[in-house]
Design a protein around this nucleic acid. Structure first.
Ligand code: SF4
Ligand code: SF4
Lengths: 151, 151
DNA sequence: AGATATTAAGACCCTATTGTCTTATAATAA
DNA sequence: TTATTATAAGACAATAGGGTCTTAATATCT
């Protein structure tokens, strides 16, 4: 169980957030992204290709190549990224999953579940890359110095 | 993606809720549960066996056999059921899933995500079977008369 | 005892997700 | 032009979730 987003999508979000912290004119190697963010290298490759097709990242082959973030991607929300990577229906699931549901014929948890789902959606739609990338640095440091905070 | 709970777990919750609406001394056929709740029959079998091992339901083989709900199961929460069916760590996942996380070294969404996760947990821990089974009847009727409310 | 009805158990299959590996292709630099 | 360095692409494998089917075991009824 991946709780909300697939691993692919989590990797995508992390990669995009990370690229947003990097100078935009210098391509970053796939390999470096993978190492820094703990993502399987070749798997990341696929995800980046997918993002490149949607013009979220730009890829440059050959020497001094790598990946850069497209400018407009800073405004992307987590919701939008999830739609692209996990598909439009990534939030269709339900806690209990009865068939044939709507507000007209709800099951016993429908009302509360719907509220929570709306909160999740609002959260994902509120979070834009440029808000997040600014706060990423401490986490990146932590990833490169594991086990330093055993307080 | 199943958003929070696996299908197995959803089926388990539905079956338990349903059994709670039935008279406790008359065993219900697996086949009937499956038909009424739209669950693949043999798959339901496995889930019921799992629940029987945890003394949530009681099984009776042979003629006039079937499944009944154990009395104490009325007090079970959705959370507890999820722990049993999906495993203790069913909520371990995260939106972005960085490794090595805690409040000490959070990623940019940690604080808000944690709040939402706590809401979900509270929701699941609050919902007990006996609260839900009482409100199940309209949904059951709806399942047996599909397509009657096209308003 | 024997026929019948029902769960128990396990082998098996399908699919999607996740991950690895290898080869092609493109760009740069010497 | 050639060597080098990168992504692109796709074949392939591993895993887990979801689901089917068959046979065994057990209880009841006649
Ligand atoms: S009624 Fe609502 S909460 Fe219940 S199963 Fe359907 S969609 Fe989910
Ligand atoms: S810091 Fe919190 S929100 Fe961010 S990845 Fe870790 S657990 Fe998830």
């Amino acid at each position: 169980m991946s709780l909300l987003l697939t691993k692919s999508c989590q990797y995508a979000i992390r990669a995009i957030m990370f690229l947003a912290t990097q100078p935009e004119n210098i391509p970053v190697l796939q390999r470096d992204i993978a190492e820094i963010l703990n993502i399987p290298n070749h798997f990341l490759g696929k995800i980046l290709q997918q993002l490149a097709k949607h013009d979220i990242v730009h890829s440059q082959r050959g020497k001094s190549g790598g990946f850069t973030l497209c400018h407009h991607a800073e405004e992307l929300t987590l919701y939008k990224i999830a739609e692209i990577v996990d598909g439009e229906k990534f939030l269709d699931g339900c806690v209990v999953g009865f068939p044939n549901c709507s507000d007209v014929n709800p099951c016993p948890v429908h009302k509360e579940w719907k509220q929570m789902k709306e909160m999740i959606i609002a959260f994902l739609q509120r979070k834009q890359i440029h808000q997040l990338s600014g706060k990423l640095e401490p986490k990146l440091e932590d990833l490169s110095n594991p086990g330093e905070h055993d307080a």
